[in-house]
């Protein structure tokens, strides 16, 4: 793929350290939007954005959510194994590399807090946006809370163990 048409990928005089992976071409933005639409449709049709499905998952009433999450992980794992094995590049010729998320105390504390929020609201971050797009206006409270939580973390970050 020819990337020279994209001015954002050209090294700029005032931004010499710009990395190719950090820029997003118009094509990539279009693909990101389409993938968002794809996932939004899936969040509704799989019902993972419904509070009752999440509640029933935590109550072990039905395997629906566990089956979806496990299948998704297995499919993604097989695909990533193939991408790494065959050194497949993105359609714009960029290498595909996963940047590992490292371990720190927050993985445990933050992870547990998020799980609690997931159970209360019936939404993880993606489904919040899906609930709002699907006309569930009460989910705006979930989003407002999530943004407040994010701001609280931003303020407290220097004091929290990492």
């Amino acid at each position: 793929m020819n990337t020279t048409l994209d001015p954002a990928s050209q090294p700029q005089g005032d931004q010499p350290e710009q990395q190719p992976q950090k820029t997003t071409s118009p094509l990539a933005y279009t693909m990101v939007l389409l993938m968002g639409v794809y996932l939004g449709i899936l969040f509704v049709k799989s019902e993972v954005a419904r509070w009752e499905r999440i509640h029933d998952m935590f109550l072990f009433r039905e395997p629906h959510m566990y089956l979806i999450i496990t299948t998704a992980i297995v499919v993604a794992m097989a695909a990533m194994w193939m991408i790494k094995r065959l050194k497949i590049k993105s359609i714009e010729g960029k290498p595909i590399e996963y940047t590992p998320k490292r371990y720190h105390t927050g993985v445990v504390i933050g992870g547990t807090l998020f799980g609690a929020g997931w159970a209360i609201t019936g939404a993880c971050p993606g489904p919040i946006y899906a609930q709002i797009g699907g006309g569930q206006w009460m989910a705006l409270f979930t989003l407002a809370g999530a943004l407040l939580g994010m701001f609280a973390y931003a303020a407290l970050k220097p004091k929290l163990p990492h």
Binding site: G110, L113, F114, G117, I128, G145, G149
Partner: peptide, 8 residues
């Protein structure tokens, strides 16, 4: 709950 999601 949203607060816990954002912070967590």
């Amino acid at each position: 709950g949203g607060f816990l999601i954002g912070f967590g």
